[in-house]
Design a binder for these strands. Structure first.
Lengths: 196, 196, 196, 196
DNA sequence: CATGAATGAGCATTCATTCAT
DNA sequence: AATGAATGAATGCTCATTCAT
């Protein structure tokens, strides 16, 4: 937030990650070249290679760093009883994370075709599986599972302003609140379906 | 059939569209090269240029051809009274279209970052706007609009087998049926919110 | 009045030549594509190949057609006594031709690098040699030969509006008149140098 | 071992310029491909792009480097009184430059159609305007301006061995001397026309 | 820590040309 | 007299990556 902090030495690695994510989210992974990243940072391309082995390494490292909160969410939830209250809390926290790490999630959302053959892909899928597992058992009937999935998608729609929410007439917080309500309805009915 | 006999088109043009869409959906737009498309068709790259002015032209033409059903759906719905029944029918037909034109929609879903600077993008956005407008008035309160959006996303999740539905244990039809149920719940409550 | 029987050439052939010369003169030979010529004529590229064997053939044919006046000038002059008056007349007629076949000459003037390996090149050189020979013997001293060459260049400069003559403040006729005066001075002194 | 040797900054950039100019002058700009230049230098095409942003950039850089003498000539002359003696000296120096930077000037002479849409074109025109302005005021009567232009063209004819001077029977120096004489006659009479 | 110089592979695109119809 | 469809070769250019310094 503070804009005038003096540039510290050797935070280059982080600056690369920041700029890279920004550009990846903005233009997509393949359409963002290392030259572009380097120029934005006013270093040479070769400098990027001092910090990261490959281009994919850059996105992977970002992914690992920014994805930790989700892992923690999963760990936390796994230590809780699978009550409706827990599930509600999972959704709430997930939504909060989504908002916080918006660029990364937007990137993942919009570049699925790219992710497909990045190694991240599998880790991502697994994580989503775990997340889903928190809301609904793996062997739950299809309607329950789909409700849980849709609950997440509702949060995504709200945060990424999909649909017709582009105008400045709604704030992220409003959208998130509205989405949580929907998600809770869905998860409630999924919960009922499963435990009945 | 119209009275005028269309000039006999070689089927190459169509074959290009088919193969291209297949590859675009599979690997993404940028990662699919014209060489690849040409090789798959056993023609030269130059042949592609006989039929299409640019690479973007290929995807645009596909888009226009395969998107027509959605336009027709919109036209149809605009001639109907905005009752709950109509809205249910919209969802049903949309889901059916989704399944039929799966590759195109999957492509659009997974390559949003790419679409961003293809000219298609705007047409796409508009179309989605119209579609949403069929379910919920433009000036509806946020919760209603978000419910409508989520209804569509539920169908997407089902058709594209997002979430944890990758196994062979569910069929497209089952998933679509389950999603329609969810979508109808959402649209029912949106309808109530709006007309109350 | 031409002795050969009236060849009933379709006018397409001629139209191709006209459009081609126009474009060649405007943009240069290599930067003008057959597609461009064909489009301008609203025919297909293949149609060009019905009338001409190759691209070079097009320019060659134009060259042959439009260059005849110069040949005739040479023939005429060779039948005259090599007096100063004859030489003046040669310059006058050459200037008139230049103005009449401006596009061709401009093309030749500006595309020498291209002409280099077109077969025309040699014919062109020879013709220029003959022309020069009308003004000054081949074994004349260098200053005389250079004066004759410069006389021609003065005409070129005037007709092609080289130098600072781009404004609309001069007409072709004015420029030509001024150039002829200069050319005559030069040829007069060359004549004196030679016959002295 | 030898410490006095400046860090062997690659001379590649200059070598590219040299080879490129040579080829451009020989075959023309469009007919010279980057592949050809690269092969001649035994580097890859990509190496050219390390040193120059585009193909046009190569010719532009050459142009700027080799054209400086002309700029300096203009600067010098502008600091002198516009006497006949000054004008003679301008012609003399211009002729010398022409001989020294022959390849560049030959290139410009023979590739005017190409230059037309290279950005250089305007710079070139301006420079020629300045040069002409040294010999004759901009508002001078047409005959005077045309004489000045012709003076330059005489030098060009001599240096580029236009006309019938291709044989080995004349040397550059002889031709230049003869052309200077002609140029001086022309400029003298232009001077008289203007100051009378 | 970082750069300067370079590479090899690839890309979208364009061109002159051919030929069956 | 002309077209529709296609080709083979080339072109300018970009990219991720390497490595000696």
């Amino acid at each position: 937030m503070s804009g005038t902090r003096p540039a510290r030495r050797s935070d280059t690695r982080q600056r690369i990650q920041e700029v890279a994510l920004e550009l990846f989210a903005e233009q997509g992974y393949e359409k963002t070249s290392l030259r572009e990243i380097a120029e934005r940072l006013d270093v040479t391309k070769a400098a990027l290679y001092y910090h990261f082995k490959t281009k994919e390494d850059i996105i992977s490292s970002i992914f690992e760093d920014l994805t930790r909160p989700v892992d923690e969410l999963v760990s936390w939830a796994q230590g809780q009883p699978p009550t409706l209250a827990t599930k509600r809390e999972v959704l709430r926290r997930y939504g909060a994370n989504l908002a916080a790490a918006q660029p990364l999630f937007r990137f993942m959302h919009e570049n699925q075709a790219t992710l497909r053959d990045l190694t991240i892909r599998d880790a991502l899928k697994e994580r989503m599986g775990h997340l889903l597992g928190l809301l609904v058992p793996e062997d739950a009937p299809l309607p329950a599972r789909l409700r849980a999935t849709t609950a997440f998608m509702s949060l995504h729609a709200a945060v990424f302003a999909l649909g017709a929410f582009d105008g400045p007439d709604t704030t992220l917080d409003e959208r998130l609140a509205a989405a949580l309500e929907i998600a809770e309805e869905l998860i409630t009915s999924a919960h009922t379906l499963t435990t009945a």
